[in-house]
Design a protein around this nucleic acid. Structure first.
Lengths: 220, 220
DNA sequence: TCCAAAACTGAAGGATCATTCATATCTTAG
DNA sequence: CTAAGATATGAATGATCCTTCAGTTTTGGA
């Protein structure tokens, strides 16, 4: 997709006085609100500023671009998720397969559901410009952590922990995203919360029971 | 997000002569190309027209909006997927659990991978305006079909085929989407192709082995 | 109290874009 | 061959938006 100069994407200056800290925070939440209310297509610097109760110029004191603003917001949210997941991984070290599978799933669900509003809003930005790099970095870190977590599970030996970790993140990230983006009645959330841990466990159990080599020429 | 008038979203007129059919097709593919090359944010009527080798005015003879154009494209792509999946469901009626699980997964993968280019491009539109309704209709149809397919599996009895079907579509749609949207080296595609069918089977097997009632107060 | 730095303001410049319409070209039935 | 309908053109219009900057207000320390 787009290839924004990856350098000029950083905030312009850091708030020093208490006043400006408040301002930056206001801009941040206003952005998310506008994003939700009007969609990415209607996300306007003026609109955001208005909603934040500041002037457009103010925003440009902290962010050189509209893009930089969006970038910063996504980055923050991404950090939250990754941090939460790494903590969960730490918690789950040494526990059995079911605990690990279900623990990862609920950790992910909790992290995303904690701020459904922000999460949902942020999905909308992803397509707008190149976040692939950012997301990729997060993904790599996660896969690595989960992979080594899987190696240490006492009651199962996985042939390819890397693939398993990769698939796990895809399952977690994908299903939660898809469900959150849909109109979704509350019922769907409940189903997701109930079924996702089971899906993770089901997958891991299957993978860990298999012999190391491929011994299955499916019945097509 | 946005709420576009759902009525004024239809194509303006249908091509009659051969010439215009070619034109419409050119516009269609041009849109996807621009979408991929420049992202949604840079998707301009002029740019699309230019790429299609026609004039802007021409495009407005067939679509009343830019939105209508995007809408039409998504709709077509969605139809392809749903049709492919319904065909797969038909094929899989009466087969055992593993065949069903793996069959659904590969059907989904095939449908999406058949035109990676279009699929990837289309993910970008979703956020731009309200496709929720459209997607929801597709989802409901799919869940229903899969649910009844699961009921007929001979070697397993699922307590809640609806939840299972729902979760299955979330897993399929989500993981494939997430992987396709990432920068993704070819290796990741292979992993997905290998692991996704297993994930589906693992989930279904787990769900079908469980007693009907909840009998598991997790070990948290 | 006073001032230099920090924050904030918002009108205006400059650019991009969606959409229209008067005009030109092509197609085909008769 | 010809006229009527179908299709295509693209400059012009009006709207929206990002970004800047000259000037104003606020803050916190001396």
């Amino acid at each position: 997709m787009n290839r924004p100069a990856p350098d000029l994407l950083k905030p312009r200056k850091t708030p020093l006085q208490a006043r400006s800290t408040v301002t930056v925070e206001a801009i941040h939440t206003a952005t998310i609100q506008v994003l939700l209310a009007d969609g990415v297509g209607r996300l306007t610097t003026t609109r955001v500023a208005e909603r934040a109760g500041v002037s457009v110029g103010t925003m440009y004191q902290y962010y050189p671009h509209k893009q930089a603003l969006l970038f910063a917001i996504v980055e923050r949210q991404l950090d939250l998720i990754v941090t939460a997941m790494l903590a969960a991984v730490e918690q789950l070290k040494g526990r059995d397969l079911r605990s690990v599978a279900e623990g990862l799933a609920t950790a992910w669900l909790d992290a995303k559901m904690a701020d459904v509003v922000s999460s949902r809003a942020i999905y909308g930005i992803a397509a707008e410009f190149d976040l692939a790099e950012l997301m990729d970095r997060a993904k790599v870190a996660l896969v690595e952590a989960i992979s080594s977590l899987l190696k240490a599970v006492p009651d199962a030996r996985l042939a390819d922990t890397n693939s398993a970790a990769f698939m796990l993140t895809a399952l977690l990230g994908g299903s939660v995203r898809v469900v959150m983006e849909a109109v979704t009645e509350e019922e769907d959330f409940e189903r997701l919360r109930r079924e996702l841990p089971r899906a993770c466990f089901g997958y891991l159990r299957l993978v860990s029971n298999e012999p190391a080599e491929r011994a299955r020429n499916a019945d097509q």
